[in-house]
Design a protein around this nucleic acid. Structure first.
Lengths: 153, 153
DNA sequence: ATATTTGACCGCAGATATTATGGATATTGA
DNA sequence: TCAATATCCATAATATCTGCGGTCAAATAT
């Protein structure tokens, strides 16, 4: 149920290189491929590993603009939150959305091709959603750190 | 050099399941494994795919608290930005950090085990960094959308 | 018109990797 | 002590990847 030093090392390596062959992983760990395979299967079964994904280059795909948008909702009707959440999940430009405690209600992270696309996104997606009262956008000028691995060590 | 419908489908599938066997990927695409393998190799060579990674469950790893921190720097000395960037890259709790245009300088995303760890992080990491003048923290109460795939379609 | 080049695709076979099985060893708790 | 459980390993069968040769069609040159 719990997780030892070896498990953490497995997770750490897999986070960096999710496609490493089990043989090579075992080599780096210092155990046999069979053992490492069994450990990994357990880690997956117990929910530590949710899946695997390719890391794509956003620039290369024409998604050069990263923005964060703070969103404030009307609190008059309580189901606004529900509806906002549902709409956000359907918007492909939105990579993340979190409900936060503090000066606003939601923080949205979105990737777009350029400012034109952003204007369209803001107008046609965000502001057109019912209950949205105010937004503040912060455009990213430089990505200092991007999608770092979770600290499992 | 450019990228057609089939390439996009490959990227889309790999984003969701980065460990899919080439045979199965080819099956879903409707081409032979060899062709798909060649395409994928090209996509990697040309920088569309940067790598692969396991998706871990933060809760399961005891990282239940997600926070966003807005950071303002002293603009008196220009190398503060350099130093801040360097320090942030070394902090394992920081998953993302972006320099933004707008009301503050940096937006930091960090995962921690709990509020105690957050207090330590804020005090010993962020505020102790030279040039940091002000921070505003927003604790995430609910993750509506987390690490959605890039819209390649 | 015809030859040639180019690019995308495919099948096959040797090399490589995964996985299921059985068994050895060590640790734990009754 | 003795059984039960964990972890690990070697082996073998099963599946997968990959390099190579070859086909085909479209574009280009002669």
């Amino acid at each position: 149920m719990d997780i030892d030093r070896i498990d953490r090392k497995i997770l750490s390596i897999l986070q960096e290189d999710g496609r490493i062959a089990n043989v090579d992983l075992a080599e780096r760990i210092g155990l046999s491929p069979t053992s490492v395979g069994e450990r990994l299967k357990r880690l997956q079964r117990e929910g530590f590993v949710e899946g695997y994904g390719a890391r794509l280059n956003p620039q290369r795909l024409g998604l050069g603009l990263l923005v964060f948008v703070e969103v404030l909702l009307d609190k008059t009707t309580p189901d606004n939150f529900e509806r906002f959440a549902r709409a956000v999940k359907l918007a492909p430009e939105v990579l993340e959305c979190h409900m936060v405690a503090g000066g606003f209600d939601y923080l949205v992270k979105a990737r777009l091709s350029d400012m034109t696309a952003y204007r369209r996104f803001l107008g046609e997606r965000l502001l057109s959603m019912p209950g949205v009262r105010e937004t503040r956008t912060y455009a990213v000028m430089e990505e200092i750190k991007r999608d770092a691995p979770l600290p499992v060590g």
